[in-house]
Computed example of a mutant assay.
Amino acid sequence: MKRGKVEMVSSTVSTARQTRSEVIERVERRLSEFLAAERERWLGVNLRGAVPVEAVTDLVAAGGKRLRPAFCAAGFLAAGGDPAEPLLVDAAAGVELIHTGALIHDDVLDASELRRGTPAVHTLHAAGHVEHGWLGEPRRYGEGVAIISGVLANVYADRLTRDLPPAARDIWSEMLTEIQIGQYLDVAVAAEGVVDPDLSRWIAICKSGRYSIHRPLLLGAAIAGRQDLAPVFEEFGEALGEAFQLRDDLIGTFGDSTAAGKPVGLDLEQHKMTLLLADAAERDESVRKLISAREWDTAEILDRLGEGKERIEQHITLLVERACGAIDRAGLDEDWRRELAEMAVEVAYRNR
Score class of each variant (00 low, 15 high):
residue 69 P to L: 05
residue 114 L to M: 15
residue 45 V to P: 06
residue 196 D to N: 15
residue 235 E to L: 12
residue 55 A to S: 14
residue 5 K to Q: 13
residue 123 T to P: 01
residue 32 S to I: 09
residue 16 A to T: 10
residue 316 I to Q: 10
residue 129 H to G: 14
residue 335 D to V: 02
residue 9 V to G: 06
residue 265 G to K: 08
residue 336 W to E: 01
residue 141 Y to M: 02
residue 59 L to E: 06
residue 328 D to H: 01
residue 80 G to N: 05
residue 349 Y to M: 03
residue 234 E to V: 07
residue 195 V to P: 01
residue 327 I to Y: 15
residue 4 G to T: 14
residue 28 E to S: 09
residue 125 H to D: 05
residue 61 A to W: 08
residue 197 P to F: 01
residue 258 T to G: 08
residue 99 H to V: 06
residue 238 E to C: 04
residue 131 E to I: 04
residue 149 S to H: 12
residue 251 I to W: 14
residue 70 A to C: 11
residue 75 G to K: 04
residue 170 D to Q: 15
residue 275 L to E: 08
residue 271 H to P: 07
residue 198 D to L: 09
residue 45 V to C: 08
residue 259 A to E: 13
residue 306 G to P: 11
residue 247 R to A: 05
residue 111 A to Q: 13
residue 296 W to A: 15
residue 121 V to Q: 08
residue 154 N to T: 00
residue 64 G to R: 10
residue 174 E to G: 14
residue 128 G to T: 05
residue 301 I to Y: 09
residue 301 I to H: 03
residue 55 A to Y: 07
residue 31 L to Y: 10
residue 244 F to S: 09
residue 279 D to F: 01
residue 69 P to W: 11
residue 338 R to E: 15
residue 14 S to A: 15
residue 8 M to A: 15
residue 100 T to F: 06
residue 146 A to L: 07
residue 194 V to A: 13
residue 2 K to D: 15
residue 290 L to D: 06
residue 331 G to Q: 00
residue 233 F to M: 13
residue 168 A to D: 12
residue 102 A to S: 15
residue 202 W to R: 14
residue 86 P to V: 07
residue 120 A to N: 07
residue 25 E to N: 12
residue 279 D to N: 02
residue 153 A to T: 08
residue 148 I to L: 11
residue 302 L to G: 02
residue 75 G to T: 05
residue 293 A to E: 12
residue 27 V to Q: 14
residue 274 T to P: 10
residue 221 A to M: 04
residue 174 E to Y: 10
residue 28 E to Y: 08
residue 186 D to Q: 00
residue 12 T to G: 06
residue 325 G to P: 04
residue 352 R to H: 14
residue 257 S to C: 03
residue 165 P to F: 13
residue 224 A to I: 01
residue 241 G to S: 06
residue 292 S to W: 07
residue 283 R to C: 00
residue 116 R to G: 10
residue 42 W to R: 14
residue 239 A to L: 01
residue 236 F to V: 06
residue 292 S to F: 00
residue 102 A to M: 09
residue 13 V to P: 02
residue 63 G to I: 03
